[in-house]
């Protein structure tokens, strides 16, 4: 390293050495500074993204907790306001004075009490069904949605129908329930806000994804409105849809048809992985 031998230097070589060394140094230092600055910029952007993600997560969790509380309140109200008075009335008919009454009055009281108990059983069954629809559990998503559509159509106000084209293989029960709740929420919204004259649901498969499309001819929202509502403090139902979509690893798209005559909501649910239980 230190043994150096040379006899003469050509003119310009020293300058070339100096400029070359300086240039290389500038190049390396600039590169290192550029990489540090770039990484800092990227990290700052990621942190901002993470912050937004956390905010969104917190909004969804709040919505989910609120939904649970509302559901509990509804069940409590149903039990307290409907089942409670019915059972109290049945108890009145079957009070201790009944043994002192004549046989006819006794039979009438027992008959009345039985009627009230039947009503109570029916009421509790309705509450139970609203929590977990038996059709969905026993016959699957297709039957459960067809059931809802028939009930809506039966009112005679809206023409509601559904058609499942490729649903030979059912989704997992928990995923079916998630999809069912999302469809229920979307239909509720259409019934409440859209003033539509028809609702039509179709299902088919596309790239191992279950595609559910809801068409209606009322007032609707587009994707930008959905994103805006999702970030705001209003639109609890839509936030619940977002939470459920996260669990189901699905996507939702709100669009207006090209002819501007109807709205389309597309739910994209990935098919279950057979190797992932």
């Amino acid at each position: 390293m230190f043994l150096l031998q040379a006899s003469s230097t050509s003119p310009g070589v020293s300058t070339a050495m100096f400029i070359g060394t300086l240039g290389m140094l500038v190049l390396i230092i600039s590169l290192v500074i550029f990489i540090i600055m770039h990484q800092r910029k990227v990290l700052r952007y990621q942190l901002r993204l993470q912050h937004l993600e956390q905010e969104q997560q917190s909004v969804l969790i709040n919505a989910s907790v609120r939904m649970q509380e509302e559901e509990r309140q509804r069940i409590a109200a149903d039990l307290h306001d409907d089942a409670g008075p019915l059972l109290a009335t049945a108890r009145l008919y079957l009070n201790e004075n009944l043994v002192n009454q004549d046989k006819n009055t006794q039979l009438q009281s027992i008959f009345q009490a039985r009627q009230i108990l039947d009503d109570t059983i029916q009421l509790i069954r309705n509450i139970s069904h609203s929590l977990m629809p038996p059709t969905l559990k026993n016959f699957g998503l297709e039957s459960a949605i067809t059931d809802i559509m028939q009930k809506i159509s039966g009112s005679g106000v809206i023409n509601a129908s559904s058609r499942f084209h490729e649903y030979k293989e059912r989704l997992k029960p928990e995923k079916e329930l998630l999809v069912y709740r999302m469809i229920q929420e979307l239909i509720n919204n259409i019934l409440k806000h859209s003033n539509a004259s028809f609702i039509h649901i179709t299902q088919n498969m596309q790239d191992s994804k279950c595609m559910l499309r809801i068409h209606h001819d009322g007032r609707g929202i587009v994707q930008a409105d959905f994103d805006k509502l999702n970030k705001s403090n209003i639109g609890l139902g839509l936030k619940n849809i977002s939470s459920r979509l996260r669990v189901a690893k699905g996507k939702i798209f709100f669009e207006k048809d090209g002819s501007q005559t109807y709205y389309k909501v597309t739910l994209e649910i990935p098919q279950d992985d057979p190797y992932n239980n």
Binding site: Q5, A6, T9, V13, A16, M24, L25, I28
Partner: peptide
């Protein structure tokens, strides 16, 4: 990188310059 880049031209021209110049750059 700083060591290799900084010494690159000096090593490249080492055989082309006289001892005095090389000492200056060394």
């Amino acid at each position: 990188m700083i060591y290799l880049a900084g010494s690159f031209f000096i090593y490249i021209f080492a055989n082309l310059v006289d001892r005095k110049t090389l000492h200056q750059f060394w």
